[in-house]
Design a protein around this nucleic acid. Structure first.
Length: 424
RNA sequence: GGAGAGGUGGGUGAGUGGCUGAAACCAGCUCCCUGCUAAGGAGCCAUACGCAUUGCGCGUAUCGAGGGUUCGAAUCCCUCCCUCUCCGCCA
């Protein structure tokens, strides 16, 4: 949610920057709604105030033994006017809220213009792209050959876009998650958190998935529906919703390993082969809750923490800054980490690190008490994958493959593999 | 799932229809006193929105949530949610 005051005062600037995100801000509608809201609110409150005054004087008049009938009549009249104004105000308020809730976050000035992935800007590269003296396979053939990746059975049990893992490959998957969790907690100062995998609509509203992106979510049946989380960002960021944090509690750094569930509506035909794009995948998520003045530097640090995972796994990658057209709804600025996949001979996204500034914190009412003003002010929230576990598994399989189709275990993962040095 | 008890400000906790946005205490903040420590004294101390901003400010809403009764609700009624205790069930 954008700050309504800011939208009012800097309308032109907001509209210009939202255009970079390919969002057309309907200034006329906003101004009309805002003006109506204001006059209705004043009217309602004035009537309410008058009514309250009469009601109070009734008590006094009664105690003094005076005739209260004239006052009662007056209140009756005020009341009908007020409830009419109230109904109009409520209706308008809902319309205005709906309008504001649908506006994406304003991108930072640093965000490059562009329409899609193609226009993202490469910031840096790390590592050496491995050269094979044989034709490298992709993870699907490698996984099937090892008996560790099974998509057919998963489809029988559930649906397409699910995977079954077995044996050392399943263990490698677990090892990756454990390794990431240990790295972030012991080297990068994160606190581990375990959170619900099913959340309610309010929680999803807080981080920005609702109301606009319900189609991407799995929803449970029932009187009070719950949704499977599409990322740990949702429950983990909402840990601070509806609260006022003390300055001494910031920054809050959380790491969270969860499965993620995405319906991937609208992605038919994309990455249908293999486990690049699944309905269910694991992710280790990094969350920062910070003071506003710290969020820019924090995004750099957060991205560095995710990069460290790839560096320790010796997987070549590059960092790109997302262009306006590729930026997510809640993000003001995003860096994607793209890992090299020899099977595709391409860099593919393995992490996305975003600064949402006060966009999510306003929606979920997460504030801190600023010692300088003594007032509660919205915190800044950031999130980043550190990393997507399924895609990390793909990257390890493809980059560490040997000529015979076996996989040598990366040094960093050996402590987690119970003595297995090679998967074959 | 069944029975009972309860949800009030950062915390404890008073408050059964008007003078209660809410006593008191604790924590916190400011000032005074004090050689240090300890103790003491005075005051401040919820949030959101709006109006006015030359300045003190003023208004509305909020006592788990929503609805109702009433001129007037933290207080009465209804529904829901949550917490605790006991029972059942289970990991």
């Amino acid at each position: 949610m954008l700050d309504p005051k800011r939208v009012r005062n800097q309308t032109e600037d907001i509209a210009r920057r939202l255009a970079i995100k390919h969002f057309t801000f309907d200034q006329a509608t906003f101004e009309k709604l805002e003006e109506q809201r204001r006059s209705l609110q004043v009217r309602t409150e004035t009537l309410q105030s008058a009514q309250n005054k009469r009601s109070k004087s009734i008590g006094k008049a009664k105690a003094a033994g005076e005739d209260i009938q004239p006052l009662l009549d007056e209140v009756d009249n005020l009341k009908s006017q007020r409830s009419e104004a109230e109904d109009q105000l409520r209706e308008l308020q809902e319309e205005l809220n709906g309008f504001l809730a649908g506006i994406p976050n304003v991108p930072d000035e640093s965000v490059p213009a562009g329409d899609s992935e193609e226009d993202n800007v490469e910031i840096r590269k790390w590592g050496v792209i491995p050269s094979f003296d044989f034709e490298p396979k992709d993870h699907v053939s490698l996984g099937e050959q090892l008996g560790g990746l099974d998509f057919e059975t998963a489809t029988r049990l559930a649906h397409s876009r699910f995977a079954v893992m077995r044996g050392p490959v399943a263990r490698l998957h677990r090892a990756l998650a454990q390794f990431m969790l240990d790295l972030h907690t012991s080297e990068h100062g994160y606190t581990e958190a375990y959170v619900p995998y099913l959340v309610n609509a309010e929680t999803l509203y807080g981080t920005g998935q609702l109301p606009k992106f319900e189609a991407d979510l799995f929803k449970t049946e029932g009187e009070k529906p719950l949704y499977l989380i599409p990322t740990a960002e949702v429950p983990a960021t909402n840990l601070v919703s509806d609260s006022i944090l003390d300055a001494s509690e910031l920054p809050l750094k959380l790491v969270c390993h969860t499965p993620c569930f995405r319906s991937e509506a609208g992605s038919y035909g994309r990455d249908t082969r293999g486990m690049i794009r699944q309905h269910q995948f694991d992710k280790v998520e990094l969350i920062h809750i910070v003071r506003p003045e710290d969020s820019e530097a924090t995004l750099e640090a957060l991205t560095g923490h995710a990069e460290k995972v790839l560096q320790l796994l010796a997987l070549p990658y590059r960092v790109v800054q997302l262009c306006g057209g590729d930026l997510g709804f809640s993000a003001a600025c995003t860096y994607d980490l793209e890992v090299w996949l020899p099977g595709q001979e391409k860099y593919r996204e393995i992490s996305s690190c975003s600064n949402t500034r006060d966009f999510q914190s306003r929606r979920m009412s997460a504030r801190w008490r600023n010692p300088e003003t003594g007032k509660p002010e919205p915190v800044h929230t950031l999130n980043g994958s550190g990393l997507a576990v399924g895609r990390a598994l793909i990257a390890v399989l493809e980059n560490y493959q040997q000529v015979d189709g076996s996989i040598s275990v990366p040094d960093a993962l050996k402590p987690y593999m119970g003595g297995i040095e090679r998967i074959q």
